[in-house]
Deep mutational scan, measured.
Amino acid sequence: KRYRAVYDYSAADEDEVSFQDGDTIVNVQQIDDGWMYGTVERTGDTGMLPANYVEAI
């Protein structure tokens, strides 16, 4: 699945990823209600991200 960031996010922990509004997130997997795991296409960084900061595309 592919998602697009709708807000900027700065990683708060080493297992999270930072991204900017408009970034595409690929290979996304749902972890639980609030978190997903995926790769930021622009940077190649992979990690956890907050589900409410992205939307499906």
Rank of each mutant, 00 (worst) to 15 (best):
Y7T: 10
A56G: 08
D33P: 10
R42S: 06
I31E: 06
T24M: 13
I25Y: 00
E55F: 09
K1A: 12
K1L: 13
N27W: 09
W35H: 05
G44L: 05
V26I: 14
S18Q: 03
R2T: 12
V26C: 10
E41C: 13
Y3L: 04
F19E: 01
R42W: 04
Y7V: 09
A11S: 07
N52R: 14
T24I: 15
I31Q: 07
D45M: 13
T24P: 04
Y3F: 10
D8E: 10
K1Q: 12
A56H: 10
I31R: 11
Q20A: 09
R4H: 06
W35V: 05
K1H: 10
Y53D: 01
Y7N: 12
A11G: 08
V17K: 02
D33Q: 10
Y9F: 06
S18K: 01
Y9V: 01
N52A: 14
Y37E: 05
E55G: 05
Q30S: 11
Y37R: 11
D15V: 10
Q20L: 14
R4V: 09
G22C: 05
D8Y: 08
T39D: 02
E55R: 12
G44D: 05
N52V: 11
A12D: 08
M48Q: 06
V28Q: 03
M36R: 03
D45K: 13
A11N: 04
I25V: 07
V54A: 05
V54R: 00
V26Y: 10
S10K: 13
E55D: 07
Y53L: 12
N27D: 11
L49D: 01
E55T: 12
T43R: 01
G34L: 14
G47P: 01
T43V: 02
V54M: 06
N27E: 09
D13W: 11
D45W: 06
Y53K: 09
G22D: 04
Q29A: 10
G47S: 00
D8S: 15
A5N: 00
V54I: 12
D45E: 14
A51M: 11
W35R: 08
I57W: 11
Q20R: 14
V17M: 03
W35Y: 07
M48W: 15
T39H: 04
I57P: 04
G34Q: 14
Y3C: 05
N52D: 11
D15T: 15
R4C: 08
Q20N: 11
E14L: 11
Y53C: 11
V6M: 13
N27C: 13
E55P: 02
T46Q: 09
A5Y: 00
T39P: 01
I25D: 00
V26L: 11
D32L: 11
M48E: 04
Y9C: 04
Q29I: 15
K1G: 12
Y53S: 11
D23E: 04
E55L: 10
T39E: 07
E14D: 12
D33I: 10
M36C: 07
G38Q: 03
V26D: 05
N52W: 10
I25T: 02
N52G: 12
E16A: 07
E14P: 13
V40F: 02
W35E: 01
A11Y: 03
Q29S: 13
E41Q: 10
A51Q: 07
V54W: 02
E41H: 06
V6W: 06
G34C: 15
Y53I: 06
Y9A: 01
I57G: 05
Y53G: 08
D13M: 13
L49Q: 01
E41L: 13
D33S: 11
E16G: 10
